[in-house]
Amino acid sequence: MTQNHTYETLYRETIPSVVSLYVLHGGRYNGSGSGFVYDVTDGTGHIVTNQHVVTTAEEVDIRFSEGDWRVGKVIGKDAYTDLAVVEVADLPEYAKPLPIAHENPRPGQPVAALGNPMGLEGSITAGLVSGANRSMITQDGFSIPDTVQTDAPINPGNSGGPLVTLAGEVVGVNRARGGDNIGFAISAEIVNRVVPELITNGEYRHSYLKVRTIDVSPTIAEANELAHPEGVLVADVSLGPASGALIGCHGTKEIRGQEVPVGGDIIVGVNGQPISSHEQLMRYLILETRPDEPLAVEIIRDGERLTESITLGTRPKPARRISVT
């Protein structure tokens, strides 16, 4: 891919790699989305899309930019990052892999969202990176860390398509619209981490600290007699024994008319890396750790700083599937 300086050139060079996916159920299509070619070996390719696009399907119908159709096999998916991989034999020659960026984009960087919004195949929308390292809350109550925020319009049907720079590098996988001029894409760093394992193993094992945490706000800092807000409060350790020696909150304290949790450990660092928010903790766990590995957790407990060694567990699969418009 050459360095591009116009959206027209970008579209011409990247759209052959973008596909439409259709999920067949009961003899008719009841779901659709977008995807892009990730790699090709001897004519067999892998297409990256969203998990919520393929849902429980084992096969999907795929339409390429020049009208060719193929049947693809869903070989891997991960609900916690909303990524899925579809394997396709006899890929059209013009459908080339798109390069994945090695790091997240910078706010202010121009980008384009490619895909098939509202069933309109081969569409491009342009905008800027509005923010990076965002945490996106899903309809099932958990969050996807490290997402890219953009004002490039992302509409139903765009899901699974690439968010690309003017150089044609994928910096995100389009996922959902969060409101007017706010869209979110799963970051390239997560794609680089998760997709190879989906191809090899069919799933991605997530590290699991087995605690529930909340950011330390000024109110929480006051209630827990901290000198200043920092880190994340361990609110609950009832999710399983692998939380080890960490201590959760044991009660509440009224601060300015609000009941505020007190008594839990304050996580301020992991493996020597400072932690200032739940988002930062989740991002570190997904990008830097593996299940069954030890994690050195620096905490504040009763005003004293100490380090506990915790063995990470494997995050269980969510009880409900993701549903995103």
Rank of each mutant, 00 (worst) to 15 (best):
P145V: 07
I144C: 09
A319N: 12
G257V: 07
G248K: 01
N116Q: 04
V260M: 08
P274Y: 05
Y38P: 07
G244K: 05
A132P: 02
A227D: 14
A126K: 10
V85I: 14
E169K: 13
L24D: 13
I266K: 01
G183E: 09
A132F: 06
I322W: 03
S187A: 13
H46F: 14
L281R: 03
S159M: 00
D140K: 12
N174I: 08
V234D: 02
R290I: 02
R28S: 14
I275P: 02
E225C: 02
I137G: 12
G119N: 01
S323A: 13
G183R: 03
R256I: 04
V85Q: 01
F142K: 08
H250Y: 14
L239D: 09
D42G: 05
N271P: 03
Y94T: 12
D82T: 11
E222S: 11
N158F: 08
I144A: 07
Y208I: 03
G257L: 09
A227Y: 00
L120T: 01
G248N: 03
T138P: 10
V262Q: 07
E259D: 14
V111P: 05
E87W: 01
G264Y: 03
L24Y: 11
Q3I: 14
R175W: 00
A132V: 15
E308N: 12
L233P: 04
G35D: 06
M136R: 09
R106V: 15
D82E: 10
A126R: 11
G161C: 04
P316I: 00
D140W: 02
Y208W: 15
I255K: 06
A221I: 01
A185M: 11
T325M: 14
T307A: 10
P145Y: 08
D82G: 09
N104P: 06
G141S: 11
S130Y: 07
V53P: 02
V216Y: 02
T55K: 14
Y22N: 11
I137L: 15
T44W: 04
V54E: 05
G202L: 03
V23T: 15
K253E: 15
V237W: 03
L91R: 08
I299W: 00
P218R: 07
R290E: 15
E230K: 14
H46G: 06
R193W: 08
A79C: 00
P117N: 01
